[in-house]
Amino acid sequence: MIDIALPKGRLGDKVYAKFKSMGYSADEFEQNTRKLVFEDKEKGVRFFLIKPSDVATYVARGVADIGVVGKDSLIEAEVDVYELLDLEMGKCSMCVCSLEGFVDDGKKPITIATKYPNVTKEYYKNRDIDIVKLNGSIELAPILGLSHVIVDIVETGSTLKENNLKVDTKIMDLSARVIASKSRYSFNKEEIDTLIRRMQID
């Protein structure tokens, strides 16, 4: 039995659709129930529906063999797992953004609002910074003077535009990744490799 951790929401639905196209299915998943565990007994696969930011933890702790997680959540989780495949789904970018007209001259400490403190620390590693950890509506921080800039995910850029913000720097491209528990991989290598190969082809 291979245990697969899927992120709740749009990405999880898309990934499940991919598994379905590969011949794996769990009828209950499509019935919009409140269940969190779905099983395809015949194919020996079990799906867990998990909060996206927790998928990496479930896999790292060996509760699931593999999981699908956004690269942003994966970096923030700082877990020791294999990253076996870039699914190229949910593509977006991690960017530094600020109000129109703001220029960071790099000469003074800067306050940064973000949901992603680890990415931010890594990017500004040689700079004196003050990180304000927020959990949502990050764009509001520079508007209300809580921070000079924000480090956040940018998909289309329309939210930024509507709030008079601009992209200053793209830090990295992001997309959904398939990760695996190092311990469980060592026991279920063949099954996991076969599944990954099929995901690459289909």
Binding site: V63, D80, S181, K182, S183, S186, F187
Partner: peptide, 9 residues
């Protein structure tokens, strides 16, 4: 080395 049931080496 890994032992089944433990997620870390």
């Amino acid at each position: 080395g890994y032992v089944k049931g433990i997620s870390t080496p």
